[in-house]
Write a protein that binds this DNA or RNA. Structure first.
Length: 153
DNA sequence: GCCAACGTTGGC
DNA sequence: GCCAACGTTGGC
């Protein structure tokens, strides 16, 4: 069964509108081991992605994507010009991996962090926890279904 | 292996 | 722009 994930992106850097244009994108630049392990070890084809706009006005869930290719070495770790360059990584022993995600649907209205907070049914949602900086988070199915309900309101 | 110092994230 | 919270680094 497909798992559900929340993936953060700063819209100034990469927004859901850009994903609409690109149709798919490699989720490069993740440099946190926990987030990497989710992509590397747990994500499966067809997993659902809640596309979250962080550092945005307002922050919130902008729409849906899905995992279209399993984890591959993140090319940005080898690119000296990239901010995500990792001098310790080699082609034989890459340190970082990324999946490819494809656009599914943009919500008519962004579901803001504020709205999510106000929904008392979403107490398990990690993004609502104080100090939760992890850029890729697992989401429980019940929470996902509840979020979809919020979209229709 | 501890932990202080530092860098980053991300809401506000 | 501020700063709390967190992850990582590196000296010991």
């Amino acid at each position: 069964m497909a798992k559900i994930w929340l993936m953060k992106s700063e819209p100034d850097v990469y927004s859901i509108d850009q994903l609409i244009k690109d149709k798919t994108t490699w989720w490069t630049g993740v440099r946190n081991y926990q987030a990497r392990n989710f992509m590397m070890k747990e994500m499966q084809l067809g997993d659902i992605v809640l596309f979250y706009h962080s550092n945005a006005e307002p922050p919130g869930i902008a729409g849906l994507a899905k995992v279209t290719t399993l984890a591959q070495p993140d090319p940005s770790q080898f690119d000296k010009k990239s901010e995500s360059f990792d001098p310790k990584a080699t082609a034989q022993k890459p340190n970082w991996f990324c999946v490819e995600v494809g656009f599914e649907r943009k919500f008519k209205n962004l579901i803001s962090l504020d709205e999510l907070r106000k929904n008392s049914k979403l107490q398990n949602l990690l993004v609502l926890k104080k100090g939760q900086r992890l850029s890729i988070q697992p989401v429980e199915k019940t929470d996902y279904l509840e979020i979809l309900k919020m979209e229709k309101k």
